[in-house]
């Protein structure tokens, strides 16, 4: 499969407003998925993590293509905290390696303190929100390079 064929699939996805496309043929496996753009809400809903590009071709099985980091987005709106208190160490710093279930941050809404756990194993390569700042639903908080 070459880029022309991938472009044809992308065109088909746009034409038919498809969110996801998956193809398996012999030893080839391709999946394309559009990022979602959810509406703001006070209540948690929808996935916290999406792929960075508008449609990211995943490498064929056995492929070695380099993929970008995965972005962790805010599942609720509220106030972003990097630590459990002013004197506590941040849950994660850039360069830290995290595993699924590790707490990345707290988002506070109406004094409901919500520990946001990582879905992925990998290295934290960027933190986009400063401690104590408001965060919107769906806003990028962390970039994790998955391992």
């Amino acid at each position: 499969m070459d880029f022309d064929e991938i472009n044809q699939i992308l065109a088909l996805m746009r034409e038919h407003d498809l969110v996801e496309f998956e193809l398996e043929r012999d030893d080839l496996h391709v999946r394309l998925r559009k990022a979602e753009t959810p509406a703001p809400s006070l209540l948690p809903a929808a996935p916290a993590v999406v792929q960075p590009a508008s449609a990211t071709p995943e490498p064929a099985s056995g492929g070695t293509a380099e993929t970008g980091p995965t972005f962790v987005e805010a599942p609720i709106l509220g106030t972003f905290y990097r630590a459990s208190g002013p004197d506590a160490s941040p849950f994660v710093e850039v360069g830290d390696v995290v595993k699924p279930g590790d707490v990345l941050c707290i988002i506070e809404a109406m004094k409901l303190m919500n520990d946001i756990k990582s879905e992925y194993a990998g290295e934290v390569v960027d933190i986009f929100i400063e401690n104590g700042q408001p965060v919107q639903y769906g806003e990028r908080m962390f970039a994790i390079r998955r391992v």
Partner: peptide
């Protein structure tokens, strides 16, 4: 009040 959220779900 303390919650935990994983995969976008409380």
């Amino acid at each position: 009040v303390e919650a935990t959220t994983a995969r976008g779900r409380v």
